[in-house]
């Protein structure tokens, strides 16, 4: 089989698909905006539910990328494409052009900017951090407050920017609940004497071994789960974070002071993903992610023949789902190229 495919995005989805396409004899150009591959995984310390180091995923992706058919272009951001006959021309923001027989968009997601939830005071209160900030603390193996002290009471706020009409995101980001459970356990391991709380609307433990991990967090680590959406955070004179939440199971408002509060930032359609399609030719869902041609049978297929999707540019996905989705995309791309020639 012959042909050349442009893959936009060198994260998990893009690299997995590139590797599989290359081994089928297809020429692949992977265009990554950063200087290196890996996407969001690079910023994560370990993964749920088995707490595998994220560097293992990066190592795996590097191996996938090692193939003569693959050309990696880094530091280039795609800002528009057009189709002439059966071939595509992509433009980058630095003015470069790329040509291919098919395009696979694997532009991923952006983390919700937690400062948009003004009531939680991210970027204002010293010890309000995001799940991403906490991952980088895990990498440094040092969980410290701004004043250099170790936190004794830590809260996780679920659904920050997800299931939230006020943020314009009606959907569930799917990964935050299990990430909170994983991070809560990680914290208890690093600071065994700490008290850890999760504030959730629903515990959505829909993946393999998720519920088991939730149970372990309760039983083995004594993590407290309080059902209710945190309404407001403020800082008191001692620098503690006064957290207000309705305990919906007790049916009463609850007030609790925290040393550290972790905001579980949701996933959003990436801004750079939107820029690929500046002229708005590709269909988008109400969740603003790229809308596949069919959510059941064509989740990798776009409304433009020859343009395909892989991974979290279509909806929030975990690594497992992203890899499966990327493999599905490869199958659709190969079918397209076979029937085209």
């Amino acid at each position: 089989m012959t042909g050349n495919v442009i893959v936009i995005g060198g994260g998990t989805a893009g690299v997995e698909a590139a590797g599989q396409l290359a081994r089928s004899g297809i020429g692949v150009t992977v265009i990554e905006k950063e200087s290196t591959i890996g996407g969001h995984v690079r910023n994560w310390h370990h993964l749920f539910p088995d707490r595998r180091s994220s560097s293992e995923v990066i190592d795996y992706l590097r191996k996938q990328l090692k193939h003569d058919n693959i050309t990696l272009v880094t530091g280039e951001l795609i800002s528009g494409f057009d189709k002439k006959g059966g071939s595509f021309r992509l433009k980058s923001s630095s003015g470069k052009e790329f040509h291919g027989d098919a395009v696979l968009i694997a532009s991923g997601f952006d983390l919700f900017r937690s400062e948009r939830k003004e009531e939680y005071g991210y970027g204002i209160y010293d010890n309000v951090i995001t799940s991403a900030d906490l991952e980088s603390m895990f990498r440094d193996k040092s969980i410290l407050l701004r004043n250099g002290r170790e936190p004794e009471k830590i809260g996780f706020v679920h659904c920050v920017g997800s299931r939230d009409e006020k943020s314009g995101n009606l959907y569930c980001s799917k990964l935050c609940c299990i990430t909170a459970v994983k991070q809560a356990i990680g914290l208890k391991e690093l600071i065994p004497g700490s008290k850890v709380f999760c504030f959730y609307m629903d515990m959505r433990m829909g993946g393999a071994l998720y519920e088991e991990m939730y149970r372990e967090a309760q039983e083995k680590y004594g993590i407290s789960f309080i059902r209710g959406k945190v309404s407001e955070v403020s800082e008191n004179i001692e620098g503690k974070l006064v957290t207000k939440v309705e305990d919906t199971l007790a049916g009463r408002p609850l007030r609790i002071e925290m040393d550290l509060l972790v905001l579980m930032a949701g996933m959003e359609m990436s801004k750079d993903g939107e820029a690929i399609d500046i002229s708005g030719k590709l269909n988008r869902g109400v969740n603003r992610f790229f809308a596949p041609a069919d959510y059941h049978f064509g989740s990798n297929i776009s409304n433009i023949k020859g343009v395909f999707y892989a991974g979290a540019c279509t909806a929030p996905m975990n690594i497992t789902e992203t890899i499966s989705h990327a493999r599905g995309a490869v199958s659709d791309v190969l079918n397209y190229l076979t029937n085209k020639h």
């Binding site: 004594g222 789960f225 305990d247 009463r252 408002p253």
Partner: peptide, 29 residues
């Protein structure tokens, strides 16, 4: 105030039960 003042409350009972009967922690209401 109707608010549950978590920090001011006495958690000795909860801790006692959880220690003697750890499955107490598993309740999801």
């Amino acid at each position: 105030a109707r608010v549950i003042d978590y920090d001011a409350n006495n958690h000795a009972v909860a801790e006692y039960i959880a220690e003697k009967e750890p499955s107490f922690r598993l309740c999801i209401a």
